[in-house]
Nucleic acid binder design. Structure first.
Length: 529
DNA sequence: TTCCGACAGTGGGGTCGCAAT
DNA sequence: ATTGCGACCCCACTATCGGAA
């Protein structure tokens, strides 16, 4: 399969807004790849690569290439000639470079690859490397396209992808099989192979979450405490333990304390879903930044600065809290309703479980939510007891509720938008009043803006413009905006030493002047540091 | 015919490790 | 030692398509 054919398909996908047309264009290329002239095992390879590229990603998880690697590229080739397998091999080689000189070698290889690509092929490769293909189709459209090409139900493909944890292998299996349905059915839960985690939607409050999950109000719901850590999926087969993150990244070597906890459980074969975080002696959660630092640190206590690192790791242990179980000693539980899975969870994972309340009473749930916040937890997740573990899809089975704080801040500058926001001023810089009569920047946001808001603020900030460096437009600090956010965190980037977490625009306030905006002292008080 | 679920896009702050400077 | 970059952790929100109601 030629890269040029993939590029042409990607262009066709980008050219239409219809998802059905996108799906059809991708399915067409998948069929051609599956019936190509390449020998059998190469066809499987071709398919996996084509699936990755048309879903907007490379097959390599990490290549060492990013946005900066695309700055100085050679002129494009006149004629196409690259095959997808050659391209995949080139990226695999780049991913393998390490040590001194690796950056140079990577740069040289990048030049060679891009120099062999035509203009359209270069555009595709740039999109894949930067992760911004912007063709209006990613993995979900790909799953539907695989189903169309193989003439099987999309739900069956989606389920196989969830079990396999990846789309490429499922696509190549189903498209090359004599019996596609049987091929899909062969992807089942396997202890030791990560599955796509089930995700949650969000609701503004408990009442809304209950309305979403139990509109009739009579069904009992599960209300879990939501912990502010990192998602973990744990597989155990005897003494073999695997810990992966939400994106199925293997972090086992970084979290020996979690491995220990799991090995000490009585059940020998397990797949558990949960959250890991740092807590103090009283069980009070540490700030998310500490959990993040601990979980991002590779194998602790070796090499440079070993003692300090080992100490840090000893103090900052991550504690796992499990809220779901997908397999226990030969029994697959994925299709069982949550109420049954919870019964098993309490048997196999106690006492390392998330605190929960089962109730049909929204007021009781609201009190439980308030209690969780008093404990210093992030919020709650409300779940229907009847639903199976529907991984990979955001479905309405789980709904998270978190508290929301607000501040009235002043816009200090605004950045140009990109993609569908090209031509608009988009990302705003936010400041709080400071005692010196100026403003202290606390972060930026582009969230919460409708197209109408974008049009309005583009006009408004042009009126207030004092400088435009081509990317950032600095404005007179006069426009007040009401900002919602999840909390404050320590920052080395911003002058006040703190920054907003998940800031978004609620509304512009024309009833307030900048002199009435919130002060940095107020913000500090909120932060508590 | 209208409604709403699912998806893609548009970026946010922080953390680490690594190579180059 | 410092800096820049890549890769991941946590994400919220809006517009849009197309199937459900």
């Amino acid at each position: 399969m030629l890269l040029a054919e993939v590029a042409a398909t990607s262009d066709a996908v980008a050219a239409t807004r219809s998802r059905l047309a996108k799906r059809a264009a991708i399915a067409d290329l998948l069929r051609r790849t599956a019936t190509g002239t390449a020998p059998g095992h190469d066809r499987a390879d071709d398919l996996e690569i084509v699936v990755a590229y048309l879903a907007g990603s490379l097959r390599q998880r990490r290549t060492g290439l990013g946005y900066a690697a695309l700055r100085d590229l050679p002129p494009p080739a006149d004629e196409p000639g690259l095959t997808v397998r050659e391209v995949d091999a080139a990226f695999a080689a780049m991913a393998a470079f390490e040590g001194p000189g690796s950056a140079q070698a990577r740069s040289t290889a990048t030049g060679e690859l891009f120099g062999s690509a035509t203009e359209r092929e270069q555009a595709l490769l740039r999109g894949l490397v930067s992760g911004e293909l912007r063709q209006g189709a990613l993995d979900s459209v790909m799953v539907d396209a695989v189903a169309e090409a193989a003439e099987v139900p999309a739900d069956a493909v989606r389920r196989a992808v969830m079990m396999r944890g990846a789309t490429g292998p499922v696509a190549s299996a189903v498209l090359l099989a004599d019996d596609p349905i049987a091929a899909l059915a062969s992807f089942t839960l396997e202890v030791g192979r990560p599955v796509r985690p089930m995700l949650a939607q969000s609701a503004p409050d408990i009442a809304a979450a209950f309305e979403k999950l139990a509109p009739d109000g009579d069904a009992g719901l599960c209300v879990d405490v939501k912990l502010d850590g990192i998602r973990i999926q744990v597989h155990r087969d005897g003494d073999d333990v695997l810990v992966v993150t939400r994106s199925l990244d293997d972090i086992t070597a970084r979290v020996p304390e979690i491995v220990e906890v799991v090995r000490a459980l009585p059940t020998r074969r397990l797949v558990l879903d949960g959250e890991a975080l740092a807590v103090d002696e009283d069980g009070v959660p540490r700030p998310f930044q500490e959990t993040a630092a601990r979980s991002a640190t590779r194998e602790s206590g070796r090499g440079r600065g070993a003692p300090a690192e080992a100490e840090l790791a000893e103090q900052l242990r991550l504690t796992p809290f499990f809220f779901d179980v997908l397999h226990a000693d030969g029994r697959d539980l994925v299709d069982d309703p949550l109420r049954d899975r919870l019964a098993v969870l309490d048997e196999v994972a106690a006492p390392h479980t998330v605190r929960r309340l089962v109730t049909a009473d929204a007021d009781a749930a609201a009190e439980f939510f308030a209690g969780a916040l008093r404990e210093g937890q992030e919020g709650v997740v409300v779940k229907t007891l009847d639903a199976p573990y529907a991984a990979g899809r955001r479905g309405a089975g789980w709904v998270k509720v978190k508290p929301r704080q607000t501040l009235d801040l002043v816009v200090l500058a605004v950045e140009r938008g990109s993609g569908r926001r090209e031509g608009w001023l988009s990302n705003i810089h936010l400041g709080a009043r400071n005692p010196q009569g100026g403003f202290t920047m606390l972060g930026k946001t582009f969230k919460g803006m409708t197209d109408e808001t974008l049009a309005w603020q583009t006009r408004r900030f042009r009126e207030l413009e004092v400088e435009d460096d081509g990317w950032v437009v600095t404005v007179r600090p006069e426009q007040v905006v009401e900002i919602a956010f999840d909390g404050l965190q320590r920052s080395t980037r911003y002058p006040g030493g703190l920054a907003l977490r998940f800031a978004r625009v609620l509304r512009y306030r024309d009833d307030k002047s900048a002199a009435e905006a919130d002060t940095i002292d107020t913000v500090r008080l909120l932060a508590g540091f």
